[in-house]
Amino acid sequence: MRITQGTFSYLDDLTDEQIAAQVQYGIDNGWAPQVEFTDDPHPRNVYWHIWGLPMFDLQDAAAVVHEVKRCREANPDHYIRVTIYDASRGRQTTALQFIVNRPAHEPGFGLDRQETHDRVIRYTLRSYAAQAPHGSRYDGEGPIGG
């Protein structure tokens, strides 16, 4: 099951040129890009590992693509996303966020139904991939920080 989250999630995966074009749009607006990765695809998992540092004072998107490539090399079977923050409101606000890398095989989610009182049913989303321990999901090797 293909995970969709963030901007452009229903488009085909962006090419490196398109990633660069998007990031450049952010940089031209004065926003700061950052690369993040994880192997837990649950939609409520908002805190991903950060790759390196947030990239302030960049002029050119090639630097971000460069970091995305390095991150892919180190964590090939992970989800990697680029988050672009807008600080103009006095706090870092996500302005743009999109996935730039995903595992080759995404097993998807199972739906657990819990029967509780009065025929009420509670639903839980459970990722098949996340049943293996952190680092050995998606047949990849352990995560490597930036």
Binding site: F8, T15, E17, Q18, A21, Q22
Partner: peptide, 15 residues
Amino acid sequence: SLGPGLDERVEDRFG
């Protein structure tokens, strides 16, 4: 439109 950056021909901006 696919959004900013996606409509322009990328080769021109990044080539």
